[in-house]
């Protein structure tokens, strides 16, 4: 029995906390969350249901912070050399968008993110399945997986730059090392945690091993993987941007690094703004996908027929 892999993991973190600055996934298999009515039915529109008071205060906070920043730089308390200025950042973002210079970089970053996500997820799924079904393999590989996962990813970036060059593939490789472990641990857990009676029932109905995988193990693993999708997507983006930052000729990370090199604080902040908006949009997309694919899950707030 090699439950060691499963047991060695820390308790699950919540979605948001995952993209931590150490750039080392702590591989929490995110347990399919307990029914959470607020997330389920209208995660995308949840803010619509926030009370007017809260919404007003939220707006006030945001506007206040930006206005304060603007004001403090205007009167000279904060040095615009180090802090730039919201109005300048806004103008820069506007320029980038209207002249279109940023789109190429954005496209590259998104492409890297996508590739890292797909390749990392595919590898994680495959290896997770293999190890969950072949106990001996899991037992043998257990220490090595822990060691590999313990390697801080940033130190790998130079190696990948040497191996894969300055183009997108070094960033993809970097992202893959982040995404892989999240998906791997979740798949492993998803397959191992399938209830015995579901397996027995499906076998009694005549299922072969491959039919078992298709009807029972894969859907169970997918549940876990989708609940960790936010984490995976976050890691894929981190991989792309950090990779670009450390060495590249294109991408948002590259734009930020360039701006930093010329002490162009406005450019750095504008890059951060663009990146944040992209991440937000991707998050919304992930929410939709997740809601669609996991709609079979118990959801206390919803139509209980009985």
């Amino acid at each position: 029995m090699s439950d060691a892999l499963a047991r060695s993991k820390p308790a699950s973190t919540k979605d948001g906390a995952a993209v931590d600055d150490r750039v080392t996934p702590t591989e929490p298999p995110v347990r399919p969350p307990a029914p959470d009515p607020s997330v389920k039915k209208s995660a995308g529109r949840a803010w619509l249901r926030v009370s007017p008071l809260v919404l007003g205060l939220q707006l006030a906070l945001g506007v206040g912070a930006i206005a304060g920043w603007q004001l403090l730089t205007q009167v000279g308390v904060l040095d615009t050399f180090f802090f730039s200025q919201p109005s300048r950042v806004a103008v820069r973002v506007w320029e980038w968008l209207t002249t279109g210079v940023i789109y190429d970089d954005l496209a590259v970053t998104l492409q890297e993110t996508f590739l890292a996500l797909v390749i990392g997820a595919a590898l994680g799924l495959f290896v997770g399945f293999l190890l969950a079904r072949v106990r001996l393999l899991a037992a043998v590989l257990d220490p090595y997986i822990k060691i590999l996962n313990a390697v801080p990813r940033v130190v790998l970036a130079p190696v990948f730059l040497l191996w894969f060059g300055l183009g997108i593939w070094s960033k993809v490789a970097f992202g893959v090392t982040l995404v892989f472990f999240v998906v791997f641990f979740n798949t492993y857990q998803g397959v191992r945690e399938v209830s015995r009676v579901l397996v027995d029932n499906t076998r009694m109905l005549g299922a072969s091993e491959s039919q078992l995988i298709r009807h029972v193990f894969l859907p169970s693993a997918l549940t876990w993987i989708f609940s960790s999708l936010h984490v995976s997507v976050g890691f894929a983006i981190v991989g792309a941007v950090v990779g670009e930052y450390l060495g590249s000729a294109k991408g948002i990370g590259y734009v930020i690094a360039q701006a930093e090199g010329t002490f162009d604080t406005t450019g750095v902040f504008a890059g951060i703004v663009v990146l944040s908006v992209v991440v937000l949009l991707v998050e919304l997309l992930v929410n939709r996908v997740e809601r669609r694919l996991l709609r079979w899950r118990p959801d206390s707030g919803r139509t209980d027929v009985a």
Binding site: V197, N201, T202, T223, W296
Partner: peptide, 11 residues
Amino acid sequence: FQQDALLPWRS
């Protein structure tokens, strides 16, 4: 089976 054995992800 004594326990519920329906696949939760299938209609």
